[in-house]
Design a protein around this nucleic acid. Sequence first.
DNA 1: GTATCTATCTTAACACTGTTTAGATAGGGC
DNA 2: GCCCTATCTAAACAGTGTTAAGATAGATAC
Lengths: 216, 216
Amino acid sequence: MKKQASPAKRSTTRPKPAPGYHHGELQEALIAASEAILAEQGAEGFTLREAARRAGVSPAAPSHHFGNAPGLLTEVAIRGYDALADALREAASGKQGPRDKLHAQGLAYVEFALRHPGRFQMMFANKRLVADDARLRQASRAAGHAFEIVVAELVGSTPKQAKTAAAAAWSTVHGFAKLALEDKFGSVKTDGGRREIIMTLDQVLNYLWPVSGARR
Amino acid sequence: MKKQASPAKRSTTRPKPAPGYHHGELQEALIAASEAILAEQGAEGFTLREAARRAGVSPAAPSHHFGNAPGLLTEVAIRGYDALADALREAASGKQGPRDKLHAQGLAYVEFALRHPGRFQMMFANKRLVADDARLRQASRAAGHAFEIVVAELVGSTPKQAKTAAAAAWSTVHGFAKLALEDKFGSVKTDGGRREIIMTLDQVLNYLWPVSGARR
DNA sequence: GTATCTATCTTAACACTGTTTAGATAGGGC
DNA sequence: GCCCTATCTAAACAGTGTTAAGATAGATAC
């Protein structure tokens, strides 16, 4: 009565009426909007209200699907870990020996972080996620597992030593990525800076896990 | 006239009148309050208003001394880097050979991160700091330099290789600390968990930089 | 000793944020 | 046709960082 069925009428402030809500597309729209914000503004720039705005809904709408902001971000983080695991597996699949595989994985890990800084930082921001979410933990473990497989092949001895070596590899590439994102190895904003950073990483990996026989 | 000189009167909501403002103690009080918040609540829990509250001043007071929240946090981060550099230097000074020194520094780095998680996380949160502040960059470089000195002694060859080795060492311990703080190596909340984590770190360091001759 | 000047702090307001409550709306099942 | 449930909106709340304007006190100058 008060509002006739004028579908274009409501797009006063909302960007996308996006026909087909009430059909289960809002989750995807919110996740996509969140990833876009992370890509544009970084992890600190994310805002639940902005995600709702981009999806064309009210600020309270997300709560019905994700509970709260950490709930939504957890979903984003899960997909991030899945994408990371894929990248690690694909990097290893392109090489033959375990050393080459590990080297490729290290490069892939840091390249992922530099390509998606906001998402990457959010994946490791436990306080902004539902840290004990079962699916999140599983996705994180799966990404770490991609490392362990290759490292186990490399070390080849006791599983305890494999665990240690995997922790070492993960720590090194993760620390490098984090430090690079904080500009500790030069500016990460320019193309040239990123190229320089990747070259430094290549040297670091060759130093710690030399591909050809001799070490140092 | 309106207010008699009743010094206890104003402590209605303010915790510490702290005689001696207007004397330059507010900066220190705000820094101390910020460090206390970081220690209690972590980096995400920091709030400029809460810092002002603890220092017993209005929310606008900090702006006169630090400009804005990043300004205050930058001062906190600088002191954090100074403390970290001290810890690294002291760790090295207690040992003899370069391998032992590096090992001790690695332990000291992670122990610092686990002992002061909030401060540590804030030190590497460029977006919440005045990232291009000259004193901050200097303090950060000084902490990294503590690593480079030991690594140069260890590698002993070209300065380029020393740079690479220092980047490797820093990345490994930084990554380990970051992952540990996000519970990737078990819970960091319990004493037992932390002990376990340090043991894992010890193995990682021995794996990458073995103290006694043979490697792996 | 009084007046002025400057650093320091407060009050009040603004535009944001995440979350909750209650109510409106629409689509599917009976 | 009706009801029922999922979905979304509107409005409000407490809290945030920051700014503008005004008050206050300490030191300085005369």
